[in-house]
Simulated scan of single mutants.
Amino acid sequence: MILWSNLEYVTLRLVRRFLFSGAVLDRIGAFIPYWRVNQGRLDPEPIVTAYQRLAREAGVAIRGTRVVELGCGAANGTGHEWIARFGGSWTGVEPFAPFDAELDAWIAQDVSRRHPGGLTGLGGRVDRVRDLDALESGSADLIVSNSVLEHVADPIACFRQCHRVLASGGTMLHRVDYRDHFFKYPFHFLTFSQAAWDNFLDPGDLPRHRLDDHLAALSCCGFEAEVVERSADPDGLAAVAPFLAPEFASRNRDILATTTASIVCRKPA
């Protein structure tokens, strides 16, 4: 079974790496087996609702705050939805995806239909930058991300910048998807050596960091982190456990089985 699934998996991974760019995936991703198009391109409402729920559980006030979102994608959809609900300011950070003005206008129009007057009535502001370097120290009260941290090659460098940008006593809310993004095979990517992954199968933005890697990086950068939501697939991991690459075979199986997690991080006042 693992041999057959690996044949399909490797074929799809090679096609993804060498034939499909991110721009192509945005257009045809809905037709690729086991692939999911970024939710932010479809409807930002569920993302903002999830942020709101996490903030409520963490006791974090969000109305009128200065928010930075990591990896906002080709449009500022989450920002429009956020401002329409809560006001304040929202700045998206997106170093890779080019801005799609047509998509952004369509999403903003859709948000306006759901929240009449929301984009102007609360006096909010939506901005966009390519890198955290462009933001002033202490300029954010809240930093959020949705299915982004799993794509960050150097979490420590990222969290150091977040620590600089975040005001004293500020909070981060991160929703992380630790599955392989060919979702039929959530853990197959853990069966390949680092060399095979880096040279042939990695699409360029899936470094295979696990939950404990992120928690260690957050602690290293001065954050107090708490996992407030976590889902796991122990049966899915058990199916590939005999074939785990040496880099993962000796690691905590409970952590490896994590599929998604929501992490609340606080910068001490």
Rank of each mutant, 00 (worst) to 15 (best):
I2P: 00
L7A: 08
Y9M: 05
Y9G: 12
L19N: 05
S21C: 05
V24Y: 00
D26I: 00
R27L: 04
P33F: 08
W35L: 08
W35A: 12
V37E: 02
G40H: 06
R41T: 03
P44T: 14
E45F: 04
P46K: 15
I47M: 11
A50E: 09
A50S: 11
Y51I: 12
Q52P: 05
Q52M: 07
L54T: 11
G59P: 14
V60P: 13
R63A: 15
V68I: 06
A75R: 02
N76M: 09
N76I: 02
T78C: 09
T78K: 09
R85I: 07
G87M: 08
P95Q: 02
F99N: 07
A101K: 13
A105N: 07
A108C: 00
D110G: 04
T120M: 06
G121Q: 03
G121W: 06
L122C: 01
L122A: 07
G123N: 01
R125M: 10
R125L: 14
D127K: 11
R130A: 15
L135T: 08
A140D: 09
A140G: 10
I143W: 00
H151L: 09
H151A: 15
V152C: 11
A153R: 15
P155E: 09
I156W: 00
I156M: 12
A157M: 14
A157F: 06
Q161Y: 14
Q161L: 13
H163K: 12
S168E: 13
L173C: 04
Y178V: 09
H181A: 07
Y185G: 02
A195M: 07
D198H: 12
D202V: 12
P207T: 08
P207A: 06
L211K: 08
D212S: 08
D213F: 14
H214D: 10
A216E: 11
C220P: 02
G222P: 12
E226D: 12
R230D: 00
L237S: 02
L237I: 04
A241T: 08
L244A: 03
E247I: 02
N252S: 14
R253H: 07
L256M: 13
T259S: 08
T259V: 09
S262F: 01
I263R: 06
V264D: 04
